[in-house]
Simulated scan of single mutants.
Amino acid sequence: MTQARLARAYSPHEHRPLDGYVVTMGAFGVLSASLVAAAKLTGAPVPERPALADVALISIATHKLSRLIAKDSVTSPLRAPFTRYAEPAGAAELNEEVRDEGSSVRHGIGELVTCPFCLAVWVATGLTGGLVLAPRFTRLVATVLTATAVSDFLQMAYSMAKEKAEG
């Protein structure tokens, strides 16, 4: 069965960019395999069990970086080839629509780059690979992202407290 027929059979009433999903899954496989190969080639020690502090740091940094890529106003030029601006989403974030014209690969990438949940696995994989290949630098970058995420929550809490106090 051809890919186009498969896509029509899979979702006859709505376009689903299966070709685009295959390409993005392939790219993720290449990213993952490249990190493994780099670790083997460099002889970088891979921990048997990551430290809990690193897991917490990478988790919060993943949250922040995923949202920065998928939603931040400043990073919209990265998403523009795959999306169209829809509306502001508050706190310097945007809502964008995935472009329907063009290829299913463009559409699939558009869905990926506008979804912080979808990007999280990519970001976490990159940061985790960074912990193996360049741990000091990765921890430094993750610390900046984590501090920014905590600051975001504190800014929102401050705004909510201020609104409540003002009645």
Rank of each mutant, 00 (worst) to 15 (best):
T146Q: 02
R79C: 07
V98W: 15
A33R: 00
V105N: 06
I69S: 14
H13Q: 14
A157Q: 05
L18K: 10
A56W: 08
G26R: 07
G110L: 04
L65Y: 05
G167M: 07
S76W: 12
H63M: 13
L41G: 08
G129L: 03
S66W: 06
P81I: 07
S11D: 04
F117R: 08
E87L: 00
D19H: 09
A149C: 02
N95S: 12
A9H: 11
A161E: 03
R67C: 15
I58N: 00
E87H: 05
L112Q: 08
D54K: 04
Q3M: 13
V144C: 10
G90V: 05
A61T: 04
E48L: 09
G110I: 04
A147N: 00
T114N: 14
R5Y: 10
F28L: 12
R99C: 09
A134E: 00
V23C: 12
T83W: 00
Y158D: 04
T83D: 01
V30Y: 06
A33F: 02
K162P: 00
S66Q: 09
L6Y: 15
A157K: 07
F82G: 03
H15E: 15
G130D: 02
L68W: 12
T125G: 13
K71L: 14
S159R: 11
L94F: 04
G90I: 00
V113E: 02
A165G: 10
I60L: 15
V55N: 01
A89N: 08
A86C: 00
D72E: 13
T143C: 02
A7W: 08
L18C: 08
L140R: 13
D100H: 14
A91L: 10
A44N: 06
L52E: 01
H107E: 15
P12W: 03
T62K: 07
P116M: 02
S151D: 08
Q155P: 02
G110A: 07
A39L: 04
A27F: 07
P81F: 02
K71N: 14
S34E: 13
W122F: 11
I69R: 06
F82P: 07
A92R: 06
E87Y: 00
A165D: 10
T62R: 03
T148R: 12
V150G: 00
S11Q: 03
A51E: 14
I109K: 03
A38I: 01
V46W: 03
R139A: 07
G90E: 08
V105E: 03
Y85R: 04
T138S: 05
R106M: 09
A51V: 05
A9P: 04
V121T: 14
A53W: 05
V123E: 03
L145R: 03
M25A: 14
